[in-house]
């Protein structure tokens, strides 16, 4: 007699509805699943492509009724390059959502500071979307976003929209090209433009490791409590559910104990 177990390793089928290049090697995939998934900002899915493998990808959208999920994928390794070859109408296989989400409740009644770098804006995008939806219960939202060059800025339309809807959007680039007269340098040089009360704010940070480290250090220095400095970490994973051991870092599994961590946890468990 064969008893069927719910198999956590078998992904479900989704169809690529839209493939939109945001920069030369970053592409937004909007997929439609066969059943509704409920997920929260900060969580991730294991995204599979047969023959290539599986990678963890954060959700870049808010959970909605239309069974749609958006993934922002940068062409970096074998699997992501193969995913980039897919066309609209092709299948992408996913399982999840996994991991802890951003503790958005911290934002209620406070200023929200969102710090992003490069493709790190993708997991923060649903946080911003949520912020706009819940504008009345939070004080002010500031977004500090840095990219390498103006061409590397992702979600340009969203940035525009957010700015129009009252979010304080501050952009900066490392290497400006022609026609850029905005900020130049790292995001950590722009704290004065955040225009928030650091002591009573919550920050959500995502980006390259160096940027996260620098941002945390500064924010802590400005008096932001360490449990309200929140970031999300990246790691190599094979399972997403705390079994394969690849993402074990410091003393935590990034997949099940994270990927969202507060600075308090990062310090306690040597995660960075």
């Amino acid at each position: 007699m064969t008893k069927t177990y719910r198999n956590i390793y078998i992904p479900e089928r989704t169809e690529i509805k839209e493939k939109l290049y945001l920069t030369g090697d970053v592409c937004l995939f909007r997929v439609e699943s066969e059943r509704p998934f409920e997920y929260n900002p900060g969580q991730f899915f294991m995204v599979s492509l047969w023959g290539a493998g599986e990678v963890p990808i954060s959700v870049a959208s808010l959970s909605n009724k239309r069974r749609e999920i958006e993934f922002c994928i940068r062409r970096a390794g074998k699997v992501t390059s193969a995913i980039h070859e897919l066309q609209e109408g092709n299948f992408l296989w996913i399982r999840g959502p996994y991991g802890k989400a951003f503790p958005l409740e911290y934002a209620i009644g406070r200023d929200v500071l969102i710090v992003g770098g490069g493709i790190g804006l993708a997991p923060l995008r649903p946080v911003l979307q949520w912020g706009l939806q819940n504008k009345n219960s939070i004080k002010k939202i500031s977004l500090l976003y840095g990219a390498r060059t103006p061409e590397d800025i992702i979600f340009k339309e969203d940035l525009q929209e957010w700015a129009e809807k009252g979010i304080n959007v501050v952009l900066t680039v490392d290497r400006p090209g022609d026609g850029w007269d905005g900020n130049i340098g790292l995001v950590t040089t722009l704290w004065h433009k955040a225009e928030i009360d650091f002591k009573d704010a919550v920050s959500f940070i995502c980006g390259p490791e160096v940027m996260i480290k620098a941002a945390i250090k500064d924010l802590f220095f400005f008096g932001m409590p360490e449990e309200r400095i929140i970031t999300t970490l990246e790691a190599h994973m094979k399972c997403g559910v705390g079994k394969c051991g690849h993402c074990y870092n410091g003393e935590k599994y990034i997949c099940t104990d994270g990927p969202v961590f507060t600075y308090k946890e990062i310090k306690e468990f040597n995660l960075l």
Partner: peptide, 10 residues
């Protein structure tokens, strides 16, 4: 790509 002109938000 959205025109860079539009991006001078700050």
């Amino acid at each position: 790509i959205v025109d860079l002109e539009d991006l001078r938000i700050t």
